[in-house]
Design a binder for these strands. Sequence first.
DNA 1: CGTTTGCATTACGTAAACGTCATCTAAGTG
DNA 2: CACTTAGATGACGTTTACGTAATGCAAACG
Lengths: 133, 133
Amino acid sequence: MTEELMTIREMCATYDVTPRTLRFYEAKELLFPIREGQKRLFTKRDHARLKLILRGKRFGFSLEEIRQLLDLYHVGDQQLTQMSRTYEIACERLADMELRREELTQAIDDLKEQLRWGEKVIASMKQEKKAAE
Amino acid sequence: MTEELMTIREMCATYDVTPRTLRFYEAKELLFPIREGQKRLFTKRDHARLKLILRGKRFGFSLEEIRQLLDLYHVGDQQLTQMSRTYEIACERLADMELRREELTQAIDDLKEQLRWGEKVIASMKQEKKAAE
DNA sequence: CGTTTGCATTACGTAAACGTCATCTAAGTG
DNA sequence: CACTTAGATGACGTTTACGTAATGCAAACG
């Protein structure tokens, strides 16, 4: 069941995506499935990355932006300068995301207020209807 | 300065978009500038709607989804049934957005943790470099 | 052993969201 | 009045993120 390696179909079923999508992500270097002969086998790492990809998409990040974000999660053993640069970029992203959350909160509050107004309108309309009967 | 009606250029300057974008939004019935002869004049209502459009885009909503959301903000005097339906849709949207915010919060926390890890790595690399000198 | 089944590659198609270019008008400017 | 300026209207081009065949291979099944 919860095996270490998954075929493309199993991945599709697990994450509700198409094979095309997974191959596309590999072509774009977002995923790196290993090969058993010709066939792709998706590793634990691919699972983690795909989850982050799908989450990123829900926030309107482009695949290219997501790729850059993903690179932050597998840095390994790079040069100090590169590492620092990566760190800076990550900080900027974080700031972006926090700003986004604030905006989202604002949007949620706006919509809530609108809904309260809507409730009142509906209530009064029901009253009118009743009165007209 | 802060006049009631704006030309297309003034709108572009104010919101950092192109004329093409504004005409496109009009074609898609997201904006409804009035006409003075041939020329478009954008009203207060268009300002409000454009702000919401741009905000929606930052969260990965499609223009069509945004259009539906915008409709919630000008309902006016519709039928009760339509109003109720609109209200339901709005509630669903609200739930979506709150879910999104939770996910975003999760993503922010993940990234923060990653950054703390990154700080440690950078610190230790600086140590190594120092030791190597 | 023929044939599904599962996956591969290659290539062309598509919807969304504009960009870009060509052409046209109406209004103002020296 | 020639000319620039601001804006309008098509029409075609472009990028992103896949969808959709068409074709091929290799193992597994009846």
